[in-house]
Design a protein around this nucleic acid. Structure first.
Lengths: 195, 195
DNA sequence: CCTACCGATCGGTAGG
DNA sequence: CCTACCGATCGGTAGG
């Protein structure tokens, strides 16, 4: 990251991370700037030395995750893997994001509707485009005879929804490891489309 | 039932239905009693002649859906269908709920965390029990050799998550019918566990 | 079902 | 990063 304008102070990162945890748990609207400040150990007014508004916190959390997803898909589209390999890569990438960026990823998929104005419109447009690109990968696999003839839109929705379902999984319970969860999602969802 | 009681009941149903639509769209915390009253065409204070509190509205919406799910599963457990038939029934029941009780079902799966006190504890306990019962059905299918040896918990999560993913589906777009969505979910998710 | 109103809390600002 | 504070809005009540 170095000296670019995108560099963020440690305090701002702390605010974003703490806010992500709070937004995920209680929802954006039910999270107050006073509660956020208290968790960090400062007064509410002091938050505004690091961020401009509550809305901006949400935007930055979501943009950070969204850009990583876009980058992965762009890279995947250029590869010459098989359709099945690409779909497995998508499943493993998204489960990995859910595991490693749990709070931020959950906020993206569950709190995006609290974005405002152009930020909301952009997110919805980007998400639709992302889904369309995933559909195209599924469609190509069907055309090549690698996959069953299913509605690509449903396959894409099932994959993204299954990943989202991991939010419900209790990591602390330790009854199932992250690897077991991920592998079983792959087997179930790849198994259901493989010809 | 007298005329007054019938009117009051109809009005309460209108409040619950209007609130469900609003809670689903904006989230529970971001929905105000004033906005709710305005959509119905009365003053905010008048709502309290029909309901006791904002929290109670959420409770009644969720309880209504939750009880229907419990009833279906209880009935299914007593049937002597095969494991695969039971799982398909679960998928089709939940997709049907999502299609026909769209607002209320979405509020249950997306707004339950705004329940308070015992209502929250009860919901979480009931949901865990529901998942355990679904897992038992999957487990029985594995034991009988009907299904692949997958982690039942993941299969259950994938099924319930796929149904939840239908919230994202734009019914108005008409590019895919309800039946196409449901059938494709069944083929994908049953296909992935069938031995 | 309304008017009038309550105390609490919200996001955010001014000024140091 | 703080104290002090703003106007707006919240869920809900009293009384008719």
């Amino acid at each position: 990251m170095g000296t670019t304008a995108r560099k963020k102070s440690a305090k701002k990162e702390l605010i974003l991370a703490t806010a992500a945890a709070m937004f995920r748990e209680k929802g954006f609207a039910a999270s107050s700037m006073r509660d956020l400040a208290e968790k960090i150990g400062i007064e509410a007014a002091s938050l505004y030395n690091h961020i401009q508004s509550k809305a901006q916190i949400l935007e930055e959390i979501i943009d950070g995750v969204s850009e990583k997803c876009q980058a992965h898909l762009d890279h995947l589209e250029k590869s010459n893997s098989s359709s099945l390999e690409k779909i497995e890569s998508l499943i493993r990438f998204h489960t990995g994001m859910m595991m490693n960026l749990f709070e931020a990823y959950s906020v993206m998929v569950g709190q995006w509707m609290h974005l405002e104005g152009d930020k909301l419109l952009d997110f919805v447009a980007n998400r639709r485009e992302y889904v369309k690109k995933m559909e195209a990968i599924v469609e190509a696999g069907i055309q090549k005879g690698e996959l069953k003839s299913l509605t690509p839109y449903v396959v894409v929705l099932n994959i993204l929804s299954a990943v989202r379902g991991l939010e419900f999984w209790q990591r602390s319970a330790k009854t199932h490891t992250a690897k077991e969860m991920e592998d079983n999602i792959v087997i179930h969802l790849i198994g259901g489309i493989k010809k």
